[in-house]
Write a protein that binds this DNA or RNA. Structure first.
Lengths: 150, 150
DNA sequence: GTCAATTTAATTGCAGACAATTATTTTGAC
DNA sequence: GTCAAAATAATTGTCTGCAATTAAATTGAC
């Protein structure tokens, strides 16, 4: 009879990542309150500030999200005046997402506020780099397993 | 006029953690398919295998989840025959969660299967430890900010 | 002993996340 | 040019996750 290794919650890497993600979420939710943005909406805006205009598909590739998640999220961003959505003239299948004037005006205000919130966290550049590296290593292994053909 | 630091998605620690968490989720979702458990259900079962019987509140403290999340999740675990839920005789407010015979029988099967899946990931003990440490450091900072009174 | 305050789950409502399906448009082999 | 295949969003359904509220039981100050 083989020896079975018990699985203890607090020794599980998956649970640490799961917890850290929830805490990060809460942190950003607080930081983003002045702008009435949720965390997923914020990372969508980050992508758009960097690359807009984008199609739903292109945005989804940056964020690893599909239209089932993005369509309602983008409708909410649109209703709050951050973006516009319109079918492309050249390809009626694709929806082009563009920044509104409000979004362009607020970009640096959001950047400034979020950067200062992140600074308050007090992560040293070294600690941040170590965390980034650890996540990169982990994601590489997970990508290999989740998506063997890559 | 102050210099505003641009925020690039791929340099954001929050986004790395968010992505890693989603990939981990997908990884476990696959690994757990034979048992018809979702990842959140699995971490609930892990906790129960370790500490059952538990009240909803106690389980929530281990997992950092409230009854709004746990009540429906536990009802699903109950309907799939993993647990039982019953009001405590001594305190009618609390609901006691207990393992079923099926859960006790399957414990080592699940442990064995998940451990072998995790091994396939190919994380070295060093890499895992580095990741764990990184998450712990990060969570400590986030706890400080999210919950200043602690 | 009484009753306000506290504790515990459940409920409600909203926002993701994702799998599976559907509708529409475009492409490309022929 | 036609039509099957592919591509793109949207939709549907299920399962979290969390804030806020509700319902019921318990506790404790008096």
């Amino acid at each position: 009879m083989p020896q079975i290794q018990p699985i203890h919650l607090d020794e599980q890497l998956c649970f640490q990542v799961y917890s850290a993600n929830k805490k990060f979420n809460h942190f950003y939710q607080q930081a983003l309150k002045p702008f009435d943005l949720t965390y997923p909406q914020y990372i969508a805006m980050l992508t758009l500030w960097q690359y807009a205009p984008l199609s739903v598909k292109q945005l989804g590739e940056y964020l690893h999200l599909d239209s089932g998640t993005l369509t309602p999220l983008l409708k909410r961003l649109e209703s709050h005046g951050w973006i516009s959505r319109s079918r492309s003239r050249s390809d009626e299948r694709t929806v082009v997402i563009q920044l509104t004037d409000k979004a362009k005006e607020q970009q640096n205000v959001v950047y400034g506020h979020i950067n200062s919130c992140f600074d308050i966290l007090g992560l040293t550049p070294d600690e941040k780099e170590t965390c980034m590296q650890a996540m990169t290593t982990l994601e590489q292994k997970l990508d290999l397993y989740n998506d063997p053909q890559v």
